[in-house]
């Protein structure tokens, strides 16, 4: 295309190129606008609907109803705590593994990647039934016999579900670093593994880590199967229950969940700004 336009006299270039570029621009704006509508319309509709609990006027009644529901408070708090536990568990599992694989066992990387993908392939219900068979009250490790045991089991289950996202997020973060050389540079200066992980690696993959943590958070918050099968009072089952029993509250709940999601994304952006070195590399 450039060769053709170059061979034309200058006036002709202006005549043919400008309308074409304008048409192109209009097209992209149209597509962009359609995209916006596609995403925004359902959202607007949902917000509008969630405000109509009181007859004839807009109100926040649905939100008040949801937020003051003691069951909402209990299940939400339970899931938030569980997600925090899951995040810590996932980080403790994934960060050292990802580091070790990058530094010492680069040949094992495809294997590890495959393993971390398994939770996406194996249906959750299969994993959950597997857990119940392995750890029921008549097994060698009766974890479902106590509340604490069941909670621990649930956290492990959540960590498994979050594994693909957590691993990928952290591995992506490590990819931007020369992990091997940085580790060696730290070692020859006398740093042990604790220093290497917490002072060298963690701060440099902080944004990646946050996105891993955030993904884990949203997975745990919405998870239904595990919590239901293990019979724990989590937020996921509560949402399903509300959806089946109330009219306006589920919409309000969805808007709240959406706001939390956006809040988290804002936090990640903020973190990127607070740690200039992680931003400049991209």
């Amino acid at each position: 295309m450039t060769e053709q336009t170059l061979s034309l006299p200058p006036a002709a270039v202006g005549r043919t190129a400008r309308p074409r570029r304008n048409a192109w621009r209009a097209m992209s704006w149209a597509v962009f606008g359609m995209g916006i509508l596609y995403f925004a319309l359902p959202l607007i509709g949902m917000i509008e609907f969630s405000l109509r609990k009181r007859r004839g006027t807009y109100s926040l009644d649905a939100y008040t109803s949801v937020l003051t529901d003691p069951q909402f408070q209990a299940t939400f708090a339970y899931s938030v705590v569980m997600s925090l536990i899951t995040i810590v568990l996932g980080l403790a599992l994934v960060l050292p593994t990802a580091l070790w694989v990058r530094i010492r066992l680069p040949r094992l990387r495809p294997v590890i990647e495959f393993i971390t993908l398994l939770p996406l392939v194996v249906p959750v219900i299969v994993i959950a039934f597997g857990y119940l068979r392995m750890f029921n009250t008549s097994s060698f490790l009766p974890m479902t016999g106590t509340v604490t045991g069941t909670n621990v089991l649930l956290a492990f289950g959540y960590a498994t579900l979050a594994l693909p996202y957590m691993y990928r997020a952290i591995d992506n973060g490590l990819r931007t670093l020369d992990v091997q050389t940085l580790t060696e540079a730290a070692q020859i200066l006398g740093a042990g593994w604790f220093t290497i992980i917490f002072r060298v690696m963690l701060p440099n993959v902080f944004t990646a880590l946050l996105s891993g943590a955030f993904l884990t958070f949203s997975i745990v918050l919405g998870e239904y199967v595990f919590a239901a099968l293990l019979d724990r009072p989590a937020f996921g089952p509560y949402m399903i229950w509300t959806g089946g029993n109330k009219a306006y509250e589920p919409a309000a709940l969805a808007v709240i969940a959406f706001a939390i999601t956006w809040g988290c994304m804002g936090l990640i952006q903020l973190a990127g700004r607070l740690f200039p070195h992680t931003r400049a590399k991209r």
């Binding site: 020369d178 050389t181 940085l182 060696e184 540079a185 020859i188 220093t195 701060p203 440099n204």
Partner: peptide, 26 residues
């Protein structure tokens, strides 16, 4: 032992002063 690498290998999250002081701090 002190070592200088081809690819510099400075710690990106630390300032120049913190990088230089790293070995002393640990």
């Amino acid at each position: 032992i002190g070592m200088v690498f081809q690819a510099y290998a400075l710690f990106p999250n630390l300032t120049v002063a913190q990088n230089v002081g790293f070995g002393l701090k640990v």
